[in-house]
C-alpha cells in the first residue's frame, strides 16, 4: 500500500507547489471536451430527432450505422482523423494535426453516433400521436419538434451523459491527433498515461482524482435534470 501513500503525497505536492501545471491540463480538457460535447449535441440531437421521427427509405440502415458507431474504437477514429489531417492527407493543408481542433474533431466523431442513436431511441419512443395532438392545437413543425424533445427529455439526459462520458475519458484518439503537447494539447487522460509511463504516479493519481470528480459533478448535474424530468413521468 506504500505505493498509494507515496503517490497521494506526491500528488498533493504537485497541486500545492505548482510543479506541474495541473490546472492548465484540466482547463485544456474542459475546453476541448466542452467544445466537442457542444458540437456532438448540436449535430447529434437534430440527427437523432430526424432518425427517430421521420419515415424514409434507408432509415433503418442509418439507425444501424448510428448504433454501430456507438461501438467505434477510438483508436480507429484517431487513425482515420490523423491520416486525414496529416500532411499527405486530404485535409493536410489545414495544418490541424496536433492541435486542439483536431482533438475536437476526433471526439465529435466518437460521440456523435452515441448522441444521435440515444436521441433517436428516445424520441422514437414518443408516440406519433403526441405530435399530431400538438399540431391539432396549432403547433408548427418547430413547436412539434420542441415538444417531442421535451417529452423525450429523460432519454436526452442519457444522451448527454453518454456523450460526455465517452469524450472526457477518451485517450487513444486524442493522443494520436493531439500529440499530448505540453501547454497545448495535453489533456487529463493523455497526461495520466504520460505520468504513469514516467513512473510519476503522484500527478497521475491527482489528475485521475480530478477527472473522476469532474465526471461525478457532471453526473450530479445531469441527475438533477433527470429528476426534474422524472417528476412528471407516468406512474
Amino acid at each position: 500500500m506504500e505505493i498509494f501513500a507515496d503517490a497521494l503525497r506526491d500528488g498533493i505536492a504537485a497541486f500545492s507547489q505548482g510543479t506541474i501545471d495541473v490546472w492548465g491540463i484540466v482547463w485544456t480538457s474542459l475546453q476541448t471536451s466542452g467544445t466537442a460535447v457542444f458540437f456532438s449535441l448540436f449535430l447529434g440531437i437534430p440527427a437523432g430527432f430526424f432518425l427517430g421521427t421521420r419515415r424514409f427509405i434507408g432509415r433503418r440502415l442509418l439507425i444501424t450505422i448510428a448504433n454501430t458507431g456507438m461501438g467505434l474504437p477510438p483508436v480507429a477514429v484517431g487513425l482515420i482523423v490523423a491520416m486525414t489531417l496529416s500532411r499527405r492527407g486530404p485535409l493536410g493543408d489545414l495544418d490541424l494535426l496536433y492541435t486542439r481542433p483536431a482533438m475536437v474533431i476526433a471526439q465529435v466523431i466518437i460521440a456523435l453516433p452515441i448522441v444521435a442513436a440515444v436521441t433517436a431511441a428516445a424520441v422514437g419512443a414518443v408516440p406519433r400521436e403526441v405530435r399530431l395532438q400538438a399540431r391539432s392545437l396549432g403547433a408548427s413543425r418547430i413547436h412539434e419538434a420542441i415538444l417531442t424533445l421535451a417529452e423525450a427529455r429523460l432519454g436526452l439526459v442519457a444522451a448527454v451523459a453518454a456523450g460526455f462520458g465517452q469524450i472526457i475519458s477518451e485517450v487513444g484518439a486524442v493522443t494520436m491527433v493531439g500529440g499530448n503537447l505540453e501547454g497545448s494539447t495535453r489533456v487529463m487522460t493523455t497526461a495520466i498515461v504520460q505520468f504513469t509511463r514516467m513512473g510519476k504516479y503522484g500527478p497521475a493519481l491527482a489528475l485521475s482524482a480530478v477527472l473522476l470528480g469532474l465526471i461525478f459533478l457532471v453526473n450530479v448535474l445531469l441527475a438533477a435534470g433527470q429528476h426534474s424530468a422524472d417528476r412528471f413521468e407516468r406512474t
Binding site: E129, S136, L137, G138, H143, L147, A150, R153, E233
Partner: peptide
C-alpha cells in the same frame, strides 16, 4: 389551423401539470 382544436381517443397529455397542458395552445397563440 389556429381556429381549430382536436381531442383524440387516447388523451395524449404532455409531461407537466394539468395547467401547463391546458395552456399549451394558448402559449402557441
Amino acid at each position: 389551423r389556429m381556429v381549430m382544436a382536436a381531442a383524440f381517443q387516447r388523451p395524449y397529455l404532455f409531461k407537466g401539470t394539468v395547467g401547463e397542458n391546458v395552456a399549451y395552445g394558448l402559449k402557441l397563440r
